[in-house]
């Protein structure tokens, strides 16, 4: 399976949100989408998911249909009086009638267990913390069994333990099932550790793309973020990024 973006361009009115973005993602590969605030990460994911009209370029998905794309937007739903289980079942919406078949219920329960949140099943979304809700929405996404996972900052409200286990699970699923996974994420160390490849967006353009140690260099970080960071090899072979100060600031 393969997802190809060819010269993807998106306009918001006159403002150019994305321009000429092109890269390929193969099955079994986790791509971390990084970049400063407003660089177009969410727009890119929405465009791939088919929720954002693009002014130019194409999204080509080989080996799967568009229905196989699963997109997890940033946190919403806090006001809905829905239980966790209902929320996850919505991922199986197409298979449900007024009655919820036992197999569908079992599948939703299984995903909840996989993410370690089975005990939350009867709780209302509004009662959960932001991090718990992120896990619930990941469960909803996984329940739909997508072939392409598009996650928009799935760990933004998670503690480090849950961040690590969520990313490990996503990587395991991606490799085990041959999924195409693109994660928009701010945490550069998490990107370096869990992604097979990193795509760096800056002002709507793809600034760099490739293996984490090729993209996450001191020079590109300075250029994209305006930050001085020390990049070094961690004992386990991954690279580690220690930002020290904003460039141009005291």
């Amino acid at each position: 399976m393969r997802l190809s973006l060819r010269d993807l361009t998106v306009h918001y009115g006159k403002r150019v949100a994305l321009e000429g973005v092109k890269f390929d993602a193969r099955g079994g590969e986790v791509v971390a989408l990084i970049g400063p605030n407003g660089s177009g990460k969410s727009t890119l994911l929405r465009a791939i998911a088919g929720l954002q009209r693009h002014a130019g370029g194409v999204v080509v998905l080989e080996g799967a249909t568009r229905e196989a794309i699963g997109f997890m937007p940033q946190d919403t739903g806090a006001r809905a009086a829905l239980t966790v289980l209902e929320t996850v079942l919505l991922g199986r919406r197409r298979a449900l009638g007024w009655r919820v078949p036992g197999a569908e219920l079992a599948r939703a329960a299984e995903v909840l267990r996989q993410l370690g949140i089975a005990t939350l099943a009867g709780r209302l979304l509004g009662e959960l913390s932001g991090g718990q809700r992120q896990l619930v929405f990941l469960a909803q996404l996984l329940a739909a069994e997508p072939r392409v996972l598009l996650l928009d900052e799935p760990t933004s409200a998670l503690d480090i333990r849950h961040t690590l286990s969520l990313l490990a699970l996503v990587r395991e699923l991606t490799r085990g099932r041959g999924l195409v996974t693109i994660i928009a994420i701010h945490d550069l160390n998490a990107a370096a550790r869990f992604a097979d490849r990193v795509a760096l967006l800056c002002e709507g353009r793809l600034l760099a793309e490739g293996r984490p140690d090729g993209v996450l260099t001191e020079a590109t970080i300075a250029r994209a973020y305006g930050v001085h960071a020390h990049v070094h090899a961690a004992p386990d072979g991954h690279i580690a990024i220690s930002p020290s100060h904003a460039l141009g600031a005291a």
């Binding site: 929720l51 699963g70 937007p73 006001r79 829905l82 919505l90 919406r93 007024w98």
Partner: peptide
């Protein structure tokens, strides 16, 4: 209207998420 019950439920999670669910 009852045939749309699940779709309407999904709408409670926001327009983006409902659209992402293929509605």
């Amino acid at each position: 209207i009852m045939r749309d019950a699940w779709s309407l439920t999904a709408l409670r999670l926001g327009e983006d998420r409902a659209a992402a669910l293929g509605i």
